[in-house]
Nucleic acid binder design. Structure first.
Lengths: 144, 144
DNA sequence: TAGCCTATTGAAAACGGTTGTCAAAACTGT
DNA sequence: ACAGTTTTGACAACCGTTTTCAATAGGCTA
C-alpha cells in the first residue's frame, strides 16, 4: 500500500511506478463493460497478448478497489467480480447473471429506507449492499 | 439427494432419517439469534457437547437453505453466514457486523424500485440482494 | 428381536478462489 | 549506467466449502 506524501494529493503518487502490467490491467477494465472475475480478466489479458501474472491482476484490482476506482461484487458462490464504473458516486447495479453486463442504477428511496431502518433499530456505521441480478435482454433473446 | 416418492408430498419425507446430528443442527440454529458461519455453528455444537462433523453441518445447512428454512448471506470476504428466520416470507436483514445479531426488515419501496429498474432496462428473471450491515447498539456501547 | 437395505456420517482429500512469499526483474531519479 | 526502491510472478499456503467413500446407524419387515 503506497503511502501518500502529505501535500501531494491526486496525480501520479510518489513511489508508484508505471509498469506495463499496471497499464494493462487498467486498460482491460476499460475495454470490457460489465463485471468480470479476476480470472476472466487474467484470461482476457493473456488472449490479448498482454500477459500479466494472476497474482499481479489480483494486486492491481485490490489497489483499484481500495482507491475507489473499481467496484467489486460477490456472486452467489462467493467469487468476486470487478468493474470500473463510469460514475464514482455511490450507486448500485443491475447485473446480468449470464454476460456480466451491468448498468448503474440510482435509488434515493433505497438510501433513505436503509438509513431509516438502521435508525429505528439503533444500528450505527451503516453500509448496505444492494444489487439486482437478472438476465439482460440480449441474453434472454439469444436463448434457444 | 433423496428422491421423493411420487404421491407422498409434505410431512416427514420418505427416506429421510431422524438422526442426532440433524436434530442438533436444527436446534443450534434455533438457539442462536443472528447470522453465524458454518464453522461457528460447528464450534457451538462441539462446545454444547453435541459434536457434529463439520461436513455434516455444511450438509444440513445446505439442505435447510434449499428447503427455504434458512437464510444465507455472504459477508464481504465471501464467507457464508446462516440464520433460521422467524418469517418465511421475503424480507431483508439489518445485520450487526460484530455479533451477527440481525433483525428482519421489510422494504416494499425497495421491491418496487428493483422491479421498476429491471423493467426500464429490459432485464428479466430478477433477483436482488439487499442487506444492510452496521453495528448494533449493544456492540457500539460495549466498545472502549 | 434380528436382519436387511438404505440414508447418513465424518475423516481425509480435493477443490477453487484468493493471498502470502521471496528472489528476480524493472522503474525512475541521479 | 547506477543505485535504491517498487513491482512482478511462479509457487506454495490459506481458507471456506465440497466430494469421496468406507463405516455407522435409522427404520422397516419378518
Amino acid at each position: 500500500m503506497p503511502e501518500p506524501e502529505p501535500g501531494d494529493s491526486g496525480g501520479a503518487l510518489p513511489g508508484v511506478r508505471l509498469t506495463r502490467q499496471r497499464t494493462a490491467v487498467a486498460e482491460v477494465l476499460d475495454r470490457v463493460d460489465g463485471f468480470r472475475s479476476a480470472q476472466e480478466l487474467h484470461d482476457l489479458l493473456r488472449r490479448s497478448g498482454e500477459a500479466v501474472g494472476l497474482t499481479t491482476v489480483y494486486r492491481h484490482l485490490q489497489a483499484l478497489v481500495d482507491a475507489g476506482q473499481v467496484d467489486v461484487l460477490r456472486v452467489v458462490d462467493g467469487e468476486a467480480i470487478y468493474r470500473r464504473c463510469p460514475t464514482q458516486d455511490h450507486h448500485h447495479h443491475l447485473v446480468c447473471r449470464l454476460c456480466g453486463r451491468s448498468v448503474e442504477i440510482d435509488g434515493p428511496e433505497v438510501e433513505a429506507w436503509a438509513t431509516r431502518m438502521a435508525g429505528e433499530h439503533g444500528f450505527v456505521e451503516i453500509s448496505h449492499s444492494v444489487e439486482v441480478f437478472g438476465t439482460c435482454s440480449d441474453c434472454a433473446s439469444s436463448r434457444s
